[in-house]
Computed example of a mutant assay.
Amino acid sequence: MKFKMMMLAAVPLLMAMGDGRPGPVALPQGAEVPGAGLNRAGTRDAPAPGSVATPTAQDELRILEAKDAQPAEFLWQSRVVVVFADTAADPAFTRQITALQSQPASLMARDVVVVTDVDPAGGSVWRKMLRPEGFSLVVIDKDGQVKTRKPLPWTVREIARAIDKFPSRLEEIGRAGLGL
């Protein structure tokens, strides 16, 4: 009986101590919670009927042509997914671009910019730097290093998982968890 009384008296004390996990983190004013406003699928819910949704540049995945983008402009700013093909009609190319456009939120959360190059004769900086043959998918980290090369299309999930293993991404995730 004394044991039960001691346990009942200890419950409020244990509850006050918590479970050892860190509590909520106070974010600096104006800071945004990564993934806030996204549903379980990693996309934003449709606007309520009658409301007007105004798309912003942040709501769209940036897809640039190789001739319009220089590697230096993305250094320490964005991760680049470069998609090469010998022609825009290449089925692997169209499948890859469709996949990238189908789930933009997952890529945007990882600071991804897509660069496409379907002109082998054009001799873009990207082709000179990466030397692809036929269809090729190349993932470049923010430090400018090539992290992944694939000869076949990848799903957004596969790309996101690969990026999440990059040291720079692990650091970003850690900072986000600390509210920095």
Rank of each mutant, 00 (worst) to 15 (best):
A53V: 12
R21H: 13
N39F: 05
P104Y: 02
A176W: 04
V83L: 03
D119A: 02
V125A: 14
R95P: 03
Q103M: 07
R149F: 05
P47I: 07
F166W: 12
S51N: 11
Q103W: 02
S136M: 14
R149P: 05
Q70W: 01
M6W: 14
M5K: 14
A109F: 02
E172R: 10
R44L: 04
P91H: 09
G23L: 08
R131C: 05
R95L: 08
L13H: 04
E133L: 13
M15A: 15
P120I: 03
R21I: 07
A88D: 13
V156Y: 03
T43P: 00
V114F: 00
F74Y: 09
Q101C: 00
S124D: 02
G177C: 04
T148E: 09
T98Y: 09
L14C: 15
R149W: 04
G144E: 05
A48W: 05
T54K: 10
F84C: 00
D19G: 13
T98W: 08
T56V: 10
A99L: 10
E73C: 06
T94L: 02
G134M: 11
A88P: 09
Q77Y: 07
T148Q: 08
F93L: 06
A36K: 06
A48V: 11
P151S: 13
K150W: 07
V156I: 07
T43I: 06
Q101D: 01
A176F: 04
L170T: 12
V118D: 00
T54A: 13
D164C: 06
A31C: 08
S78V: 04
L137F: 08
S102E: 11
I159E: 08
K147E: 10
D117S: 08
P12S: 11
P55V: 13
I173T: 14
P104H: 03
G18K: 08
A31L: 06
G18E: 09
R79W: 07
P104K: 00
N39A: 11
A26M: 10
A109T: 07
Q58T: 13
P24E: 11
G174P: 06
